[in-house]
């Protein structure tokens, strides 16, 4: 059984099916990458799993516990963390206060500073004053301190310099290597496939490809066709 098992999920927006019976899984120590063109339903899928978007059908099961009807807060407390798009720092709180919001009072922010040492130098600064890259590091570090079992990250690279994106990708890989299950939505397919283990390509709310990241990374033409919709629905190695 997978750590996170999402099966047949249906999420509607304004009566229109945005996610249509989608099934994905996430395993401890692995990164599952969700790819797809704009409007494919990637963000809505994550919101459905996190409980923000109401689910019309399907199941969300975390480590055997059915969370389909649980509130977003209950899902978070069960170990399901979502990092939303847009660097959702608490802007008026300092960097360290952002970290303290989620961390166990018994432990310090050291794990976060080990992952992103530059945050230590910026610990007393209001998070709203950090650069875009530092803010993204902060939200990842903040999620990490809550010690989730599954970390879902939505478009963390948006608007960031390539060198920062590369650092963030390495940090995410490190989290997975330490045992966390990661579900990554990413617009830069090549970067995501380079660090991912399992890939899903979504089109119009459904999965049109499921397989190893390396298989898809070796075949960019196929990926291109999967995005555009002129490749057959399939399963990779």
């Amino acid at each position: 059984m997978s750590l996170l098992d999402v099966s047949g999920l249906v999420v509607n927006r304004a009566g229109v099916g945005v996610v249509r019976g989608t099934s994905v899984t996430a395993e401890a120590g692995q990164i599952s990458v969700l790819l797809g063109a704009n409007g494919a339903g990637k963000t809505t899928l994550l919101e459905g799993i996190a409980g923000i978007a109401p689910v019309a059908a399907g199941r969300v099961v975390l480590n055997g516990a059915d969370l389909t009807r649980a509130s977003p807060g209950d899902r978070a407390r069960a170990g399901l963390a979502l990092i939303e798009q847009g660097r959702t720092v608490f802007a008026r709180l300092t960097t360290e206060e952002n970290l303290r919001v989620s961390m166990d009072p018994e432990t310090g922010p050291e794990n976060a500073y080990a992952l992103f040492p530059e945050l230590r130098q910026r610990s007393g600064i209001a998070a709203g004053m950090l650069s875009g890259g530092e803010q993204q590091m902060l939200v990842i570090a903040r999620a990490l301190l809550a010690r989730p079992r599954v970390l879902m990250i939505d478009e963390m690279s948006a608007g960031l310099a390539p060198v920062i994106v590369s650092r963030l990708m390495k940090a995410v890989r490190r989290l997975a290597d330490e045992g966390m299950a990661v579900l990554l939505v990413e617009q830069f397919a090549s970067l995501a496939l380079a660090i991912g283990d399992r890939a899903y390509v979504l089109r119009r709310g459904g999965v049109v490809y499921e397989g190893g990241c390396d298989t898809l990374a070796r075949d960019p033409e196929r990926l291109h066709h999967l995005y555009l919709g002129d490749a057959p629905v399939g399963r990779g190695e």
Partner: peptide, 9 residues
Amino acid sequence: MAAELMGIP
């Protein structure tokens, strides 16, 4: 919403 997603009641 960000607070709720972090498990804050």
